[in-house]
């Protein structure tokens, strides 16, 4: 019985401690950790990627201490609204739909969506004729899944919790295509695990669905924090820090047009 008591106690204190941890003056940043090359967890549990480097640089620029909180993508916005962290730096696109619930800084990068298909695919392009009846995989709760639902006609959409699962399924030959950010797909296709597949085509972003690129998400009404992030992004662009991080991961500028 002692053991059980202890367990119940630890559970109870865990609740207390996390309640008290709010008082500390750290900025908590939510990220997914399953979205290479932007944010991913190494096997020993450290976060790496473009988002992580940018977040660290932003915090240094804003002179605040930051800590990362890993959260599944599905629950990212609810968790932000529930105050589990103060900001999200996880390649979250600034869309009309999301702006109803949360606020964003200015974008810190913007890349278009794309379709990848198995190498032996008979699909030629993203036209309705070639997409008809095809099984297309996407990560749920993303702009890409919205895009697939609204713009890719005649497909059967399959939703996965992380890109890893649809990669597994297209490698296994279960899907006819996947829709995802072009840099994420590119990174995967370059690796030997992505050898099954090829890039089919870039998709023209829809301003309503895909929004204005990825920004730092904050709770509704925290304009001050959002503005701070926007200013810091601008500063990083100006002082060359952004370019340094960018070049570590990509051979082109992911920021996109001004």
């Amino acid at each position: 019985m002692h053991f059980m008591k202890k367990l119940a106690l630890t559970a109870a204190t865990a609740l207390m401690v996390s309640g008290a941890a709010q008082a500390a003056d750290k900025l908590r940043i939510g990220t997914e950790g399953a979205y290479p090359p932007f944010n991913t967890l190494t096997k020993d549990g450290t976060l790496v990627g473009f988002d992580i480097d940018i977040a660290n640089a932003l915090c240094a620029e804003m002179k605040v201490e930051c800590e990362f909180v890993v959260q599944d993508w599905d629950g990212m916005i609810p968790a932000l609204m529930a105050n589990k962290f103060d900001a999200v730096i996880a390649s979250m696109s600034i869309t009309e739909e999301r702006l109803k619930k949360i606020d964003f800084s200015e974008k810190y990068y913007n890349t278009p969506p794309a379709l990848a298909v198995p190498k032996d695919s008979d699909m030629k392009d993203a036209s309705a004729a070639s997409l008809k009846g095809k099984l297309v995989g996407a990560q749920s709760s993303t702009t890409h899944s919205e895009y697939a639902e609204k713009k890719l006609e005649g497909i059967e959409l399959k939703l996965y919790p992380t890109p890893d699962e649809f990669k597994l399924d297209i490698e296994a030959g279960r899907l006819d295509a996947v829709i995802e950010d072009v840099t994420v797909l590119g990174e995967w296709l370059k690796s030997d695990k992505g050898s099954c597949c090829k890039m089919l085509t870039l998709l023209t972003p829809d301003p309503v669905i895909n929004g204005k690129g990825a920004g730092v998400a904050v709770r509704k009404g925290e304009t001050e924090l959002a503005n701070k992030f926007s200013a810091a992004i601008k500063a990083l662009r100006a002082n060359g820090k952004y370019k340094e991080i960018n070049n570590k991961y990509f051979d082109f500028d992911v920021y996109g047009g001004e």
């Binding site: 559970a11 865990a14 609740l15 996390s18 309640g19 629950g75 529930a82 105050n83 589990k84």
Partner: peptide
């Protein structure tokens, strides 16, 4: 429980203690 307790817990704690509480997945599962 995971989402609802969070909303409810935050609401109660906000009104009573003026702070928020985190219902983590362990507690929600429990």
């Amino acid at each position: 429980v995971y989402y609802g307790a969070q909303i409810l817990g935050n609401f109660l704690f906000q009104t009573v203690f003026g702070t928020t509480i985190e219902i983590n997945s362990f507690v929600a599962g429990m």
